[in-house]
Every structure is written in structure tokens, then in C-alpha cells.
Amino acid sequence: MYALLQSPAPAGPPGWTQFVFIGGMALMFYFLLIRPQSKARKEMEARLSKLKAGDEVVLTSGLYATIDRVEDKHIWVKLGGSVVKARRAAVASLASEPETKN
């Protein structure tokens, strides 16, 4: 008789709402972090593929240099009076591009 007088336990939200919440978080993570980063990486790869002799570039070390010649994965840059071999990935930007503030 006591069991009949007790009120039923309160029901929680349906189980599918957790999946909707997790799915929404995954979409936010993709659009706020993954997509912009991959877009910037593709733009940088496109810029690096267009490098040619005579371009003035800024290296990741902050040095300004002029490209002497371009190879598959390396570039030869003029720094002052000397020519130095560097990786293509060492190019941060073209010297003519405006600097971006991060």
C-alpha cells in the first residue's frame, strides 16, 4: 500500500537530447577551429607553390630575403651578399603583403 502512495520518480530529458547536444558541440568545434585552420593552410600552400625567382619574402625567422632560385622542396634565397638554401615552408609571407595582427 505504501508503494501506491509514493509519487513516481521525476523523468529526466529524453536520451536523444544528449546526442543533439554533442552533435552541436562537434559542429561548433568544426566551424570555429578546424575549418578556418585548414582554409589558412590551403591558402599558404597556394602561395608557396607560386614562389618564383626575384620575389621578396619574409622568412619565419623574420629575415627579409630575395628568392634566387626555386627547387621542389627548397628555395635558394639571397641574404645580403650570400645565397642560402632554405625550405619552402620557411617562407612566412611575401614582403609586399600587408602584415596581419594575430
Rank of each mutant, 00 (worst) to 15 (best):
P10G: 08
A86M: 12
V20M: 09
H74C: 05
A53L: 08
L94R: 03
K42I: 14
S82Y: 11
M44W: 06
V91Q: 05
G62N: 01
G12F: 10
S7F: 04
N102P: 13
P36L: 01
G54N: 02
R47W: 08
L4D: 08
Y30V: 04
V57G: 00
Y2T: 15
W16R: 06
A9E: 08
K50A: 10
V77Q: 03
A95I: 04
A86T: 02
A11E: 12
T60F: 09
W16H: 08
Q6N: 04
K78Y: 08
R88S: 02
F21Q: 12
G15R: 15
K78M: 06
P14L: 04
L63F: 12
V57R: 09
P13S: 12
G12A: 14
E71R: 01
A90G: 08
G24C: 04
L33P: 01
D55N: 11
V20E: 06
D68P: 03
V84M: 11
A9Y: 05
T66Q: 04
L94E: 06
S38H: 09
Y30H: 00
E45V: 03
D55E: 03
A90S: 15
F19W: 13
P14A: 12
L32Q: 02
K73G: 13
L79P: 03
K42R: 14
S49T: 08
T60Q: 13
A65W: 05
E45S: 04
G15V: 12
E45Y: 11
R47D: 04
R47E: 05
A3M: 13
A11V: 11
K50Q: 10
Q18E: 07
P13Y: 15
V70K: 02
L59V: 00
S49I: 06
V84H: 09
A40S: 07
